[in-house]
């Protein structure tokens, strides 16, 4: 039960129920789809850039609480970040959900993203959390193919 509480934290349940930046961005520079066919999680991430800074990031789509909250939190965290910062957050988020960041100080530094630390106890759900991130990354890398993390 304690593991479950760590998985379904308030932040995650809240972002699932009231996803932020949950809309299509009409004048987006990039939009890429992410789709995990086995579970049906399906999102499109929209990005608008100003130089090498993300000036707008939104998403639409549907899926489980973990994937939707992950997309929502990601959108709030990445707005205003440079591509270098995005790259580093992308890596840190992966380390976090795979249980590779152990010390509390490093986890705390991740702010709202820290809520996803509990996923490391549920290995089959890691793919849900990272789907929006891989979708965003493909948009930045200007790859237009649909992403899957299965």
């Amino acid at each position: 039960m304690s593991d479950l509480k760590a998985l379904y934290q308030e932040v995650i349940l809240d972002h699932n129920k009231n996803p932020r930046n949950f809309k299509k961005l009409e004048d987006a520079d990039y939009s890429v789809e992410g789709y995990n066919p086995l579970c049906g999680d399906h999102y499109t991430v929209y990005l608008k850039m100003k130089g090498d800074v993300i000036s707008e990031i939104t998403f639409i789509g549907s899926g489980c609480a973990i994937s939707k909250a992950s997309a929502s939190v990601m959108s709030t965290v990445l707005k205003g970040k440079t591509l270098t910062e995005v790259e580093s957050l992308f890596n840190e988020f992966h380390h976090l959900v795979r249980g590779e960041i152990k010390d509390d100080v490093s986890i705390e530094k991740l702010g709202k993203l820290a809520a996803f630390g509990g996923i490391s106890e549920f290995p089959v759900r890691v793919k849900c959390a990272i789907l929006p991130w891989h979708t965003m990354k493909n948009a930045i890398d200007k790859k237009n193919e649909t992403v899957s993390t299965e």
Binding site: M1, L4, K17, C64, A65, I66
Partner: peptide
């Protein structure tokens, strides 16, 4: 309503209940 099958599956699993979720 408003709860994805995968979330149902994970929570049931924590209770020792094995069901399948997906397509």
């Amino acid at each position: 309503e408003d709860i994805h099958p995968h979330d149902v599956g994970t929570i049931l699993d924590s209770e020792g209940i094995a069901i399948r979720t997906g397509h």
